[in-house]
Computed example of a mutant assay.
Amino acid sequence: MPASFRGRASKSNDSGRFEALTRAPFDDGWDDADERPDRLDTTLTPEAARRIISRNDSPDIGFDQSINPYRGCEHGCIYCYARPSHAYVGLSPGLDFETRLFFKPEAAKLLEKELSRPAYRPSFIQLGANTDPYQPIEAKLRITRQILEVLARFRHPVGVTTKNALVARDIDILGPMAADNLAMVAVSVTTLDRKLARAMEPRASTPERRIDAIRKLSAAGVPTAVGVAPIIPGLTDHELESILERAAEAGAAMAYYTALRLPREIKDLFREWLAAEQPDRAGRVMSLVRQMRGGKDYDPQWNLRMRGDGPIADLISTRFHLACKKLGLNSRNRRTMDLSLFQIPGRATNQLDLFG
């Protein structure tokens, strides 16, 4: 049977898909259940990255550059689309993803080096495209803050996506950047039900603290969006309007949503979680998921993978747009980040020094 560990969403830790050997739990009768640990500690390993900016050409993603200070995420969201990436380092997308984390200590220096290259051309950079840049270890390591400090010095536009209220710590950087049209933040709120959030995304900030972060960011002049992401049919979809209303009251100006995605190992991890945490809804939830994915657990087609297809997906889309219209969300033209302010610090001074 899947094990439950305090503060962890995954119920298993199966081998990654690239491993030659497969490991699976087996009860041989010798282990005393009372002696099993009820928690797993988090381990941190530095990662020697050569470059820090990742690039993509996906047609349904609104940015082509991103930075991920961390690999793995202690938030432990059971539905996280980044889980399969842990298999690339020989680890499990299950419990390993939540407990065996990697950080990039030289991220800020690497970024400064890349931005200073003569061939670099400024383009919007997204923080939090894969794992959360404000997950709990950021409070101590402060790598995301160091990255923002570099971007502020270079006057480079940035967007942040997070589930952690810790983002409000960096208002002193984000506020002045936003005043120059160089920063925006999206705060993801999956549910307002604290009990459900604790089971589904155990180490992310509580829903109320995320709403409060939206309030603080908005009050500081930072353009802030609420992401109802992901919407889980049969489990959280009934909260769509309530989440948008709470976010609008807190000052959010923009909103977006995504439908639950279950690629690769996530489908099995999510099914395990449903069976353990929501057994009375498990069958219904997966039936609705398949109805939105052409009868499958997941359909990776561009432009459909984020929304789904069919009557249920259409209904969610209609509800979302009607609620946004009623609340005034997305009513203003989204500001385009200002690329013209980009400047390599000290470049002009250094050139003049040659003639001094």
Results as ranks from 00 to 15, higher is better:
Glu277Gly: 07
Tyr257Gln: 05
Phe270Leu: 06
Leu240Val: 06
Asp280Ile: 03
Pro223Phe: 04
Glu245Cys: 10
Asp309Val: 11
Asp172Phe: 11
Gly308Cys: 09
Lys216Cys: 12
Ala183Gly: 15
Glu245Leu: 01
Met254Cys: 13
Met286Trp: 02
Leu244Ala: 04
Glu239Pro: 11
Pro279Thr: 03
Asp180Ile: 10
Ala259Phe: 05
Tyr298Ala: 13
Leu182Pro: 04
Thr206Trp: 15
Arg209Ile: 15
Glu265Tyr: 13
Ala220Pro: 13
Ala252Asp: 13
Asn303Tyr: 15
Leu217His: 07
Thr191His: 07
Arg198Trp: 11
Leu304Arg: 12
Gly283Asn: 08
Ile243Val: 06
Leu274Gln: 03
Asn181Val: 03
Gly310Arg: 11
Gly251Pro: 12
Lys267Pro: 09
Ile266Tyr: 05
Leu166His: 11
Lys216His: 14
Gly221Thr: 07
Trp302Arg: 07
Tyr256Trp: 15
Arg261Asn: 09
Leu235Ile: 06
Gly251Lys: 08
Met286Thr: 08
Val222Cys: 04
Asp309Cys: 10
Ser205Val: 09
Ser205Pro: 14
Thr258Lys: 04
Asp299Gly: 06
Thr190Cys: 04
Asp180Leu: 13
Asp309Ile: 07
Arg246Ser: 04
Val289Cys: 07
Met184Val: 10
Lys216Val: 13
Arg203Thr: 10
Val189Met: 00
Leu196Asn: 07
